[in-house]
């Protein structure tokens, strides 16, 4: 059976909130190392990869591999009943047809309990190759969101150019052009505002802003976001969580004919 307790329901609430507009039905794959999810959007352009490691739960127990087939809209309805600070316990039998969720308030003796019906989901899994990216940019997640939303007002696509001079996000639209350039920057007092650019070779890639703006819904999970690029391969956008847990998004590039 599965028993996994989070000290703060907000972690799961934020994760589900960040991905529910990209994927509707998906499996939460549970094993002794934790709970993982890999799902593509309907157009097969974007992929979500979540790993909530066993260490992120206290306690965590999972005797056998269990796939929890969940409709994220339904899960959202149930999670809305949890306060951010509630402790959240997930429970399921070995061959479950429902997922039990318990929310416990720390402030008082209120306990709420829900059972969510599960579904059989035949999910297509993709093998994601280990990639040495040519450019790895770490920046405040709020800054990345701002750049993406600002540029989306002008264009459907953004071109990301990473060079020794910095990283430039630029777009061309019917009403005009826009560009934002960031350089490496260290803030000793507020490291969450740091911008770090690691580069082994220059990169230039174009992506759909619609998807990037969607990924930015995960900004609530982490002050910083890491974006990894190599020419002509999908972009990786990673929000790191505590205990090596993470939420990653991959986005296929737009390439000239």
């Amino acid at each position: 059976m599965l028993e996994a307790k989070l000290d703060q329901a907000s972690i799961l609430k934020k994760v589900v909130d960040a991905i529910k507009d990209l994927v509707q039905d998906c499996n939460f794959d549970c094993n002794d190392s934790g709970i993982a999810l890999q799902a593509m959007d309907n157009s097969h352009v974007a992929l979500v990869s979540m790993a909530l490691k066993a260490e992120s739960f206290q306690p965590y127990r999972c005797d056998r591999n269990i796939a929890l087939g969940l409709n994220l809209t339904s899960l959202t309805k149930v999670l809305r009943a949890a306060q951010n600070e509630d402790m959240l316990t997930l429970r399921a039998e070995d061959a479950p047809d429902s997922l039990n969720l318990v929310f416990e308030s720390k402030a008082d003796d209120r306990i709420s309990e829900y059972d969510l019906k599960l579904m059989d989901i035949d999910q297509e899994h993709l093998g994601i190759p280990e990639t040495e990216y040519a450019a790895t940019i770490t920046l405040p997640s709020s800054e990345f969101r701002r750049i993406c939303t600002d540029l989306m007002a002008l264009s459907e696509s953004v071109t990301i150019d990473a060079s020794k001079d910095g990283v430039k996000f630029s777009c061309t639209g019917d009403i005009g052009n826009g560009a934002v350039t960031l350089r490496s920057h260290t803030n000793v007092d507020k490291p969450e505002l740091n911008v770090d650019i690691e580069l082994s070779e220059p990169v230039s890639l174009t992506f759909s802003l619609k998807y990037l703006v969607n990924f930015c819904k995960a900004s609530a999970l982490s002050h910083q976001v890491k974006i990894c690029l190599s020419n002509e391969v999908p972009l990786l956008v990673e929000y790191a969580l505590e205990n090596q847990s993470h939420l990653r998004f991959y986005l296929a590039p737009k390439i000239g004919d």
Binding site: M40, S43, H44, V45, A46, L47, H125, L126, G127, I128, P129, S157, T206, S208, V233, P234, Y250, A252, P253, K254, I255, G256, D257
Partner: peptide, 14 residues
Amino acid sequence: PTKQQTLGKFFGAP
């Protein structure tokens, strides 16, 4: 002109 690629081209079956 650029064309949106899909992930299947880059990520194979495991």
